[in-house]
Design a protein around this nucleic acid. Sequence first.
DNA 1: CTCATCATGTAACCAGTTACATGATTTT
DNA 2: AAAATCATGTAACTGGTTACATGATGAG
Lengths: 173, 173
Amino acid sequence: VTVALEHAILVALRERPASGYELARRFDRSIGFFWTATHQQIYTVLRRMDGLGWVRGEVVAQDDRPDKKVYATTPDGDAELARWLGDPLGPQPQRLDIGVKVRATATGDQAMVAAVLADLRRQRDRHAERLAEYLAMEVDDPVHGLVLRGGVMIEKGWLEWCEDAIRVLEELP
Amino acid sequence: VTVALEHAILVALRERPASGYELARRFDRSIGFFWTATHQQIYTVLRRMDGLGWVRGEVVAQDDRPDKKVYATTPDGDAELARWLGDPLGPQPQRLDIGVKVRATATGDQAMVAAVLADLRRQRDRHAERLAEYLAMEVDDPVHGLVLRGGVMIEKGWLEWCEDAIRVLEELP
DNA sequence: CTCATCATGTAACCAGTTACATGATTTT
DNA sequence: AAAATCATGTAACTGGTTACATGATGAG
């Protein structure tokens, strides 16, 4: 295993043991800055990790809600995480749809430019929204602050770039 | 088809017709800012696109080198590109290994912090390198300039964040 | 009684990666 | 003769997405 959801889950479970359902919600928030995952995938991977002995799940009965299976990391899981941390990361693959779209306008007609402009405006608004969300968050832990600043940096960068792109495409021909 | 390599290839072929081999090299450079692809994948996808009628390949004999198959977009391919451009992009999935690694240090021991620091320094150097590369490039086309500024923005942002992260992790406990 | 939330899964599919393979031509 | 570059592919695998499915519990 080189790099996958497994390690993100190990990190999350070390912060606090959780059920698949709870993990899925945490992957929509803080951890989701850097990694997203659906509940289907999380359940599947948790079972595999249990089989590998990296985590151990325990059924917890609940009165007011359906029962849940709470997972925690094992020493083997911690060892695997340490191994992965020591493994240097390769170059991150870039995959940016909006960049491809913008590039298409270099040889595109009026209609294509208009379509990309519409998408750029949507994208700009989305980044502005997320930036506002991040700026409203407060954290005490220095590492979480660092992670948050990463999110702010990304959103701010893209927001400015979208505005730049809109300006360029509007004044194109 | 919602969003995939196909559209990046259509954009590239509209800029200039090319063989699979040539495309693969262009995906290592300019287009690679926003999309990467191996030659294996490119050949496979080109054949499928030929089957769909989005591109048409023509064998070109060469004296000094092996023959090649040069592809160009067709009207159907252009139509498919226009359709995709009009289709609003969904939220881009974030997947950032280094962010997961940094977050692991929040509950990690000394050895884990040291491992992540080492990776952060490697990552920082890589971003600095790429930033220098981008800053050395010159373009005339306004759209290509825009795309290049996007690359600069990303690299600069990550470079600063890596430095931030190194500072935080060094002064941690 | 119905809807929202909590909770857990299976199955089919797809895009992309990795490993393997072949052959022409040019340069050293 | 060997190595580098140009050129094109196939096959197996894997991580992740999408669609489908079920059931408990509590709130209105």
